[in-house]
Design a protein around this nucleic acid. Structure first.
Lengths: 153, 153
DNA sequence: GGTGAAAGTAGCGCCCT
DNA sequence: AGGGCGCTACTTTCACC
């Protein structure tokens, strides 16, 4: 299990991993070697998976977010297979979930602007039958790139 | 602007940044120093913002994702202020957008299990009036932690 | 953008507490 | 488990071409 130091380390690292072990160590009141051992352990035990670079979406020309809720036209293994393939082939779909409730799926799509959504929509409906497709455009991202809550105590 | 090498670097780094510049350099056919200079430039120009550690949600005890769509009870500056404060205070809400269309807001919430959603729901409705709150539980995450599409060509 | 040398780090084994 | 040491190897960084 994780103690307070582990949680502090994970919390810190998922906010900014571009830091020397020596600096991390003093923030959690550990020696550099003990701190390095912990990080290696957290990695080995699968809490910490990998380091990634965050890109600025606006700077990358992808400021627009659209959420798309989908109802399937047919509940069959073949359809699901096609749907999975479509998700994999469309890089603008950066997140996809199968849901409970009124909707079957929700997709999160990133785009240069709202007009580009039409191209994604057409790409999807020509690949497989969809019963209902509703797009909700994000007018304002109020919270994003948020670190996972690392429960203390 | 970005050339092909920049895009290749950004694409690679947002998948896995735990790599030596020397290795990156040979993947884009550059010398290590030229490659390091590019990365420094991409950072200085704001394409690359920072390095972060990815945590395993299951391992961290937060395997459950719930999407919540919210309609506001009142369109006022005071309400919005309260809503922003609530978003900031609830760490389980890891993403929030103001939307066009039938819904006003969508929240993405991470939890140890579905039962915990009730606590978040109560926390929200006691802080501010909400006209409609509908939760959609993710039964399966089909795509996630996806790197941004870095358009080539 | 390439080269080569200097400075900084990380990683490892070790022993001690 | 943590602290501290020394070592090696590697990586980044910088002046210079």
């Amino acid at each position: 299990m994780l103690d307070d130091r582990d949680r502090a380390l994970l919390s810190r690292l998922q906010r900014d991993a571009d830091v020397a072990v020596a600096e991390l160590a003093e923030q959690v009141n550990l020696s550099p070697s003990a701190c390095a051992r912990r990080i290696a352990r957290l990695r080995a035990e699968g809490y910490l998976t990998r380091l990634v670079a965050r890109l600025d979406r606006r700077r990358m020309g992808l400021p627009t977010t659209v959420f798309v809720v989908v109802k399937t036209a047919q509940h069959s293994a073949e359809w699901l297979e096609q749907f999975r393939a479509a998700l994999a082939d469309v890089p603008e779909i950066i997140e996809a979930h199968r849901l409970t409730g009124n909707f079957d799926y929700i997709l999160k799509i990133v785009l240069p602007n709202v007009e580009h959504y039409d191209a994604i929509y057409k790409k999807l409906i020509q690949r497989l039958p969809l019963f209902e497709v509703s797009a909700y455009i994000s007018m304002e991202t109020m919270k994003h790139d948020t670190p996972l809550p690392v429960t203390y105590g």
